[in-house]
C-alpha cells in the first residue's frame, strides 16, 4: 500500500494541533490501515512523552541570594540618571537655563562691536550716537558699546548697552530709558525682554 504524500507532515501538524479537518481524517484513516506509519507516529509520540517526562527540576538553593549579591550596587550616578528620567520637565528646564546663561555670557563677551538701531536722522560720531536737536525719532533706539546723546526727541524706548546715555536739557524721551553695563544687568535685561515677548505672544 502506498502512503499518501505529506503523511509525515500531517503527523507533525497533528502534534502541533495545526492540522485541518480534512487532513486529520486522512491521517487517522491511513494510520488505521498502515502499520509502518502507525509505528512512525508512535515513535514521535513516545519521543515527546519521554522529553516531557523529565521531571521538573528546581534551581539550586541560595539561587536568589546569589543573584541579589551579584546585582550591581546602586551608584549615585544611577540614582541621578533615574531622577533625570523621571523628571523630564525639570531636566529640560535646567538644561534650558544652563544653555541660555552660556549663550548670553558668550554674546556678552563676544559682542564688543559698536552697533545701533537704524533710524533716519541719527548722527553717529566716534561711537557716540546723537539725536540732533529739533529732530524727532519715531521708534525705539538700541545702542551697543557706545554712548547716546539725546538733544532732540525720541518717541519710543531707549536702551544703551555698555555705554552711557547723556540727556541734553532740551532732550526728550517718551518711552523707557535703560542703561545696561554689567553682566548681570545684561542677563536681567534679556530675561525681562524674553518674558515681555512671551507675554506679548500670550496676549
Amino acid at each position: 500500500m502506498k502512503c499518501p504524500d505529506n503523511i509525515v507532515l500531517y503527523m507533525h501538524e497533528y502534534l502541533d494541533e495545526e492540522i485541518d479537518e480534512h487532513d486529520e481524517q486522512l491521517l487517522k484513516k491511513h494510520l488505521q490501515t498502515c502499520p509502518k506509519c502507525q509505528n512512525y507516529f508512535h515513535e514521535l509520540e513516545k519521543a515527546i512523552a519521554l522529553v516531557q517526562s523529565t521531571s521538573h527540576i528546581q534551581a539550586p538553593s541560595n539561587f536568589t541570594e546569589n543573584v541579589m549579591a551579584r546585582l550591581p550596587k546602586e551608584r549615585k550616578r544611577v540614582g541621578v540618571n533615574r531622577w533625570f528620567r523621571h523628571h523630564p520637565l525639570l531636566t529640560a528646564a535646567s538644561l534650558f537655563i544652563i544653555l541660555m546663561t552660556g549663550s548670553l555670557l558668550s554674546t556678552w563677551n563676544k559682542d564688543h562691536e559698536f552697533s545701533v538701531t537704524k533710524q533716519p536722522d541719527l548722527v553717529v560720531h566716534n561711537n557716540t550716537v546723537i539725536v540732533p536737536e529739533g529732530k524727532v525719532i519715531k521708534g525705539d533706539i538700541t545702542v551697543r558699546n557706545g554712548d547716546l546723546q539725546v538733544e532732540g526727541k525720541v518717541e519710543g524706548d531707549v536702551t544703551v548697552i555698555n555705554g552711557e546715555n547723556y540727556m541734553a536739557s532740551a532732550g526728550n524721551v517718551t518711552g523707557e530709558i535703560k542703561v545696561v553695563n554689567e553682566v548681570f544687568d545684561w542677563i536681567w535685561y534679556h530675561i525681562k525682554k524674553t518674558s515681555k515677548e512671551l507675554i506679548s505672544v500670550f496676549n
Binding site: D16, E18, Y40, E43, L44, K46, A47, I48, L50, V51
Partner: peptide
C-alpha cells in the same frame, strides 16, 4: 518555529526510539 519543531521531533524520534 514550526519547521524547527518538526525537525527536532524527527531527530528525537530517531534518537529515542
Amino acid at each position: 518555529v514550526k519547521t524547527r519543531i518538526h525537525r527536532g521531533r524527527e531527530a528525537l524520534r530517531h534518537q529515542l526510539r
